[in-house]
């Protein structure tokens, strides 16, 4: 029970704790990284290098009034932020961190992750709809369209990896990369997944559902206090999840030279992508909504199909 093994209590507890703490820490990490890239210093006053800023923020957000607007639909308004937390945390269940650390070893890991990501759309839609606010509604409409669209080729882009590995099991996908990471054969798949991942977690530059310059704060305009905090943390959880998935699917998961333990390799790889996502936020402007949609359907979708086709051809021809 108290040894690290897939599905052990210790494993589950430490994953849950690590993931949530990490997501919270990301608030500070993102602010500092962003400020460095913008020639600023960022929060550096609370604790060492400002690391306690997270605690200060948490105190603030926990002690804020828990308020539901009188015009909102109360049930779905409260439910929406919980959904995003739950579905993203559930997704972590199938992520293989190391050979020992993980929650479940599922044969349909990839499908499970995709299914959970689809459920995440409900959170955003319910949040916008229940707020009874035109900006929130516009935000949730955009979110629904964006998430539904980008799920399509996110799934298709993964299929190349699945075809190469011959399995939906994420653990087996990692193990099958012992000879070489899938980034090499699946570089196009990787790019599509990267883009779709950003869109799926509606991070900048694809934060169209909450574009504050246009529609206030989109679907979470009416949220405040910890309910807003859950959306906020949910977004960082999504960021960690996408980075972990990229690591698992394309960069060999925990695999690496043995002078470092597997968990460190995993953390390094995932951390790199987290930083990369933050860099994207710092550097890239937000596309227009129509640009986003046409880019997805007219460019990424054919490209991902082509990738799958080519992968299929290669795999079949080498059989």
């Amino acid at each position: 029970m108290f040894t690290f093994a897939v599905g052990s209590g210790l494993s589950i507890a430490s994953i849950l704790l690590a993931v949530i703490v990490l997501a919270a820490m990301l608030i500070w990490v993102e602010r500092r990284l962003l400020s460095f890239w913008q020639e600023r210093l960022g929060p550096n006053r609370v604790g060492w290098f400002g690391i306690m800023q997270v605690v200060a923020d948490m105190i603030k957000i926990f002690t804020k009034e828990d308020w539901v607007p009188p015009f909102a639909d109360r049930l779905s308004f409260v439910l929406a932020p919980a959904i995003i937390m739950v579905v993203v945390l559930m997704s972590f269940a199938v992520i293989p961190f190391t050979p020992e650390v993980g929650v479940i070893d599922s044969h349909i890991g990839v499908l499970f992750v995709l299914a959970m990501a689809s459920l995440g759309a409900y959170s955003v839609m319910l949040g916008g709809l229940s707020s009874n606010n035109k900006y929130a509604l516009l935000g949730s409409l955009r979110a629904a369209a964006q998430m539904v669209s980008y799920e399509v080729f996110m799934g298709i882009s993964l299929l190349g990896v699945v075809v190469l590995a011959g399995s939906f099991n994420l653990r087996e996908i990692v193990e099958s990369q012992a000879d070489g990471w899938y980034i090499v054969p699946q570089c196009i798949g990787f790019l599509i997944f990267l883009i779709a991942g950003v869109a799926e977690s509606h991070r900048l530059p694809f934060d169209i559902p909450e574009a504050e310059q246009e529609i206030c704060a989109g679907y979470h305009t009416e949220y405040s206090g910890m309910k807003f905090g859950m959306f906020f943390v949910g977004e960082y959880l999504g960021l960690v999840l996408i980075s972990s998935l990229i690591t698992v699917l394309f960069f060999g998961g925990w695999l690496g030279p043995s002078f470092l333990p597997p968990i460190v390799w995993f953390a390094l790889k995932a951390g790199f992508f987290i930083a990369f996502f933050i860099l994207m936020r710092a550097a890239l402007p937000r596309p227009r909504y129509d640009q986003l949609m046409s880019y997805g359907w007219l460019f990424l979708l054919p490209l991902s199909l082509l990738n799958l086709l080519l992968t299929g051809v290669v795999v079949l021809s080498t059989l």
Partner: peptide, 24 residues
Amino acid sequence: TLLSQAVTLWRVFRKLFVKADTVQ
């Protein structure tokens, strides 16, 4: 689409090694 974005990313990334303007 890709190259210009990549160049942007690289240029912004280099700012990591530039001294901040912030006055303490």
